[in-house]
């Protein structure tokens, strides 16, 4: 089964459409994460796929079938809402039974299946609780179990972890990952937390200005993004405009570097790829600020006309005003458009 979103455009009626031309294809069993800043239209896209909104242009296809005009309840699109949307007047069991009742399954089958799903997400002991008596994590599991109970052909999750605290979020995202990959349906996952996206996805798409401007595996996007905006969203602290110098090199604010291949407009490197120390000669700079972040130390170092951000071993112990030398490994420098 595959979910395909083909050139979808959508506007709420304001002057600028929220989605201009979005195309996504998610394969069977694949977890595709849609990354994007707040207000970029992620929820809007999910609503289009689920059938709550109808696109102005483009199509939504499921397994080659055009479902753009099919009613939400006939699409087989399972959705886990940002706030879970559990039915407050039904206990956990009845929430999970809801989709099966809607489809008139046989009683025994429903019960068996509900038990199975509770087991799967680990909420068997909570079956008789009302939603108001559940913790955030338990609600989230219930919401997933309920979505699965509808036998969805595709699963949509809208920031399912955003309502939880940091520790729980990290714990649950591992669980969620293994659960999602064990399902054999395309999954579209939404978050604006890049770490969560990395941990959970097979593939990530970055939504900006109504378009997917870049997509790829987590590794690719983490290490070798192609677009300036993607890089900056994914934590490339250092992005500089460059100029071509001819004869196979480019001019950067930190000095020229040899280059072959296409000319980028920018280059970038992650703060954690900067090496600090005396060896290798390299660049010299003065620390403007240093911020201790547990396992690493963040330095803002002024060097030539720019500021370089680096994440280094805290034992270095550089403080404000210190002179430091550093170098940037050639292969960690990424060309950007």
């Amino acid at each position: 089964m595959t979910l395909e979103v083909v050139s979808v455009g959508f506007g709420y009626g304001g002057s600028v459409p929220v989605l201009k031309d979005v195309s996504i294809s998610v394969g069977d069993g694949e977890v595709y994460t849609l990354l994007g800043s707040s207000g970029s239209g992620k929820t809007t896209l999910l609503n289009i796929i689920a059938g709550f909104l109808r696109p102005d242009s483009g199509r939504v296809m499921l397994d080659g079938e055009d479902i753009t005009h099919i009613r939400p309840e006939r699409r087989g699109v399972g959705m886990v809402f940002q706030d879970y949307a559990l039915f407050p007047h039904m206990n956990v069991r009845n929430n999970i039974l809801f989709p099966m009742k809607a489809r008139n399954l046989a009683r025994a089958e429903m019960d068996g299946r509900a038990d199975e799903l509770c087991e799967l997400v680990g909420i068997s002991h909570l079956r008789d609780r009302m939603p108001s008596e559940l913790s955030g994590g338990e609600k989230q599991r219930t919401a997933i179990a309920r979505a699965l109970a509808a036998d969805p052909r595709v699963l949509l999750l809208d920031e399912p972890l955003s309502a939880l605290d940091a520790a729980l979020r990290i714990e649950l995202r591992g669980e969620l990952r293994s659960l999602l990959s064990s399902l054999e349906v395309p999954t579209l996952y939404i978050t604006h937390d890049q770490r969560e996206a990395m941990a959970i996805s097979d593939r990530i798409g970055y939504l900006l200005d109504g378009r997917i401007i870049e997509e790829g595996t987590p590794e690719k996007l983490y290490w070798r993004p192609e677009r300036v905006q993607t890089a900056s969203f994914l934590g490339f602290g250092n992005i500089f405009r460059v100029k071509a110098r001819g004869n196979g090199s480019i001019a950067t604010p930190l000095g020229p570097i040899p280059w072959n291949g296409d000319m980028p407009s920018h280059i970038g490197f992650r703060p954690d790829s900067v090496r600090i120390g005396t060896d290798g000669g390299g660049l010299k700079g003065k620390v403007i600020s240093s911020e201790y972040r547990g396992s690493s130390l963040f330095l803002r170092v002024s060097c030539r006309s720019v500021v370089v951000i680096m994440e280094v071993d805290p034992h270095i112990g550089a403080g404000k005003g210190d002179e430091v030398t550093f170098s940037i490994p050639r292969d960690s420098i990424v060309p950007l458009r």
Partner: peptide, 17 residues
């Protein structure tokens, strides 16, 4: 396999309703 084959005929009303 966690998900079953989909049963068709969705819509209308459930028995209970």
């Amino acid at each position: 396999m966690i998900l079953r084959m989909r049963k068709e005929r969705i819509g209308a009303l459930s028995r209970g309703t």
